[in-house]
Amino acid sequence: MLDIHRKINLPFHYIQLDSWWYYKAIGGGVSQWKSRPDIFPDGLPTLYRQMERNDLFRIDLLSEAAHDCGLIMYEQDWLHVQSSKFIPLLTDIDLDRQWLMSTSEGADKVNITIQYSCVSVDYTRHIVYREDQWTIGISSLLSDALDIALFKDVFWSTTNEPGSAYKPSPMEPLPEREIVIAILSTGPVSSGDAINYTDSKRIMKCCRQDGLILKPDRPITMIDLLISD
């Protein structure tokens, strides 16, 4: 990962690790929220300390993780699955609120933010089935009203990326559109390219040389006429 980080000529400030680096139990649930040695042999704290610009990782809500590993944002993923299939949340009217509030309070204590992820159409369905995952106009109305930033998901900066695990024929027809929508969402601009397929020149159109994203004060939204009765 360090070699790739140094090779890609982009001013990355953060790296977000999704749900693939820790120990899982039956059904894909978390058994131990710690890095597996077959993925990070020296552990995440060691990797963090070796990053040239102190890049930050999603690791843990605990202050130890924030201190040792540079955690600034915690992603609570798969909310749509937890809310619809986790039996305790369906049978206890107070448990959902307790869970979310305790997570929020824990994040506040260690001065980190939270990203809530509840996906209806993720980017995989866009590149495989051509579903319009980039249409954020209505979602951004809600996020703007709540004064939070919307994350449209990652994107490919290159149209075709051979060797992808997604089948049968994934492709991104308009990488520039994905980048523009990510910018106009006011949220993170996150490339999710395979190794050696990142189009640095294309991505750099969204930011300054130091990586500061050139985004608007408010997100792009659907106009009232299109959603009115």
Rank of each mutant, 00 (worst) to 15 (best):
K24Q: 12
K24P: 08
A25Q: 08
A25G: 15
A25L: 05
I26P: 00
G29S: 09
K34S: 09
S35K: 00
R36I: 03
P37R: 08
P37D: 03
D38R: 01
D38V: 07
G43L: 03
L44G: 00
T46W: 03
L47Y: 02
Y48M: 04
R58I: 13
L61G: 13
L62A: 14
S63C: 11
S63W: 04
S63H: 07
A65H: 01
A65C: 05
C69R: 06
G70D: 01
M73I: 15
M73P: 07
Y74C: 03
Y74F: 15
Y74S: 07
D77S: 15
D77G: 10
D77W: 15
S84H: 13
P88K: 04
L89F: 15
L89C: 13
L95D: 06
D96I: 14
R97S: 12
Q98R: 15
L100Q: 14
E105M: 13
G106A: 14
A107G: 11
K109H: 11
V110A: 02
T113W: 01
Y116D: 14
C118F: 01
V119H: 04
V121S: 01
D122L: 00
Y123H: 11
T124M: 07
T124C: 12
R125L: 05
H126P: 04
H126Q: 09
I127C: 02
I127S: 02
V128T: 10
V128I: 08
R130A: 02
D132I: 04
Q133V: 11
W134E: 04
G137N: 00
S140P: 07
L141M: 10
L141T: 11
L141S: 09
S143L: 08
S143R: 04
D144L: 06
A145E: 09
D147W: 05
I148W: 09
I148F: 06
I148P: 06
D153G: 12
F155M: 09
S157E: 00
T159D: 04
E161G: 02
E161K: 00
P162V: 06
P162R: 04
S164W: 00
Y166P: 03
K167V: 12
K167G: 02
K167D: 08
P168S: 12
P168K: 10
P168G: 12
